[in-house]
Design a protein around this nucleic acid. Structure first.
Lengths: 358, 358
DNA sequence: TTCTATAATGAGACCGGTCTCACACGCAAT
DNA sequence: ATTGCGTGTGAGACCGGTCTCATTATAGAA
């Protein structure tokens, strides 16, 4: 009697076969649902399986078939509700197709991303969905692709990597959001984004290795220039990766006498922190400062005033990227697709004309 | 040249062994990091592995060892930020111990929960963390436990199932929150919760099969009775599982002339919807109606006024339950633990004396 | 009746690792 | 010179499925 290890050896096809008095091959046929078997034998095997409470070992099944039924997902930050929704879209779509999802968080660190990819490849996932945190180092992604395992990119495009990609119209969305601000009369607009960077100051686009971040800055700057604003980049701030960083950036931004009269935040985590700082400083939105943020997070509709947002269809993004990946897993050979999902702007109450005592 | 199937057969230990001119067993020894090998051979094998870009097949490894390095997690609703945080706590703790996580969403449906458990068992996860949606039907959980696979329960206890369990002090938390309301003078307090139920009316505790929901109702009713409120159950509402349901409940609750003067919401998803309805009806918080909710969701601190909440340490809950599970996976034999994590109440501005034109 | 096509079943290889066991070799003790 | 022991290596079974191929039984055709 071995009670040190309580693990009971699980029931295998061989056990069922023995119980049903048929060969392992035959039992496997009915249990695996392939090949042909007579109705009588099928009944016997099924009865034996039920009696023994047989549960197929998916691992062993995966070994031979080479398919694991698992999709690996690497996102930048699950805590960000934009990603939560995307992941929900991925999970739902995958599950509907009979796939499971292993989720890994890269924390936007390239090394963590590489490690996650390695682990998932080791687990022989049937395909990967990645939110690449950098466009400089894509060797690990190229490896996936080369190994024949389907790869699809979410939210961020990689110019060097020609695979299925689903993004939103970041550049355009940033332009439209900025235009709302300039049309209302703003000339001093801050753009605050989360790209990992030691300094908060922006120098030029060459610093930015994340496509979505870059395109949004481009769009922001373009719209500003269209409106005749001279050096719009003076109010671009990077590195709002954590609440404390965002707070520091916001504090500094609002402390100068020629502070911006409007802010465009690149995600809702940044915006909520900025909103808190704004309120703590006794400033009013939109009378003292206007605010627009990317992502229609739940909180944006319950503040006073509610916040004008760029609504990114995150769930849809996840759904579409998964559909693309699944098609490729099914072996359809076709040129890689680059889908750009349109965004819309939900105008609420956080934008007003600039306040400026002259 | 075979370009119909781009899948390149992956490099195996046998390939590496051949390249390094050693036996498969020896190559496996250095690659797997077990047994003894001479330094020379180790070098040869490692060089061959690097040259061939060998990646171990975790699936095959799991087959023989019986361990998959995966923890299965079944939660009620990932969209709920309480669970997001808990899952984050689980993921972080698991990853730190070298485990991966497969996440499944039950949507609080017992059948989906059973299906998820079956799939995860099939994948031979090393252990499971489940948020049981019902206490009536626990056969599938008992099966896990019986199969020798460690199981730990999150957020909800099961009286019949003696396994590691981590919950919060739901009853006590509900009492404390209610007492804040009664101390401020409220006599007509609504309690709105999310348990799946066709009707919204509450009859008795026998209806409730989810421990946390039940304990909270108990706590709420007890605190009301302590304050001398006669039939506190008249304002208990069930079935706020979706925004539309919550909206319907809230509308009905606020339409009657003897409407409640305070509300206690069992989660932040319910509370945000109620808050919206309250505002749409032109009611003010806390002048016209007081509001407390479970879970310190981000939005609760940016409304005007900010919302008083029961702060549940969701991340900590996930962390603790994972630690318990990991210990058991490591084979430590010990009696099951039931950990109750304390909550705290964060008083903000959503509670005031009852308004009543008499 | 004999031959052949077809259906049903069994035997065993295989997937890619782990791990047990046997064996060869070298060196110290007897 | 013989025995003994430890170290390093190889051969091959094993995990629990899938799947190919051979074999047998059965029915229909010649």
């Amino acid at each position: 009697m071995n009670n040190s290890t309580p693990t009971i050896r699980s029931v295998t096809v061989a056990d069922v076969a023995r119980e049903a008095r048929v060969s392992k091959a035959t039992a496997a046929r009915v249990l695996g649902g392939y090949g042909v078997v007579s109705d009588k034998v099928r009944g016997d095997v099924l009865a034996a399986a039920k009696a023994l409470d047989y549960r197929p070992n998916e691992l062993a099944r995966s070994m031979t078939t080479g398919k694991s039924g698992i999709i690996g997902v690497v996102v930048g930050d699950i805590e960000n509700s934009f990603f939560s929704f995307a992941v929900r879209g991925i999970s739902d779509t995958a599950r509907a197709a009979g796939f499971n999802v292993i989720l890994a968080n890269s924390g936007e660190q390239i090394e963590a991303e590489k490690a996650a990819v390695r682990v998932l490849i080791g687990k022989r996932v049937d395909g990967l969905i990645v939110t690449p945190s950098e466009s400089r180092d894509v060797s690990h992604l190229r490896d996936i692709h080369r190994s024949g395992r389907p790869l699809a990119l979410l939210d961020r495009a990689l110019p060097d990597l020609d695979v299925d990609t689903v993004t939103v119209d970041d550049r355009d969305a940033a332009m439209r959001a900025t235009r709302i601000l300039t049309d209302t009369g703003h000339r001093d607009i801050a753009y605050v984004t989360a790209v990992d960077f030691s300094e908060h100051e922006y120098r030029d686009l060459e610093q930015i290795y994340t496509s979505s971040v870059r395109e949004r800055i481009e769009g922001f700057l373009a719209a500003c220039r269209d409106a005749g604003i001279v050096t719009p980049e003076r109010f671009v701030r990077l590195g709002a990766t954590k609440p404390e960083e965002t707070r520091a950036i916001t504090d500094k931004l609002l402390s100068t006498p020629e502070r911006p009269t409007a802010i465009l935040a690149s995600d809702s985590l940044i915006a909520i922190e900025m909103f808190k700082v704004i309120r703590e400083r006794g400033l009013r939105v939109p009378e003292d400062i206007s605010l627009i943020t990317f992502h229609d997070a739940d909180w944006t509709s319950v503040t006073s005033p509610p916040i004008t947002v760029v609504d990114q269809p995150a769930y849809m993004l996840g759904k579409v990227v998964t559909e693309l990946l699944l098609r490729r897993i099914e072996g359809k050979v076709r040129p890689p697709e680059r889908v750009i999902v349109p965004t819309s702007i939900i105008q609420r109450g956080s934008v007003g004309p600039p306040f400026r005592e002259k």
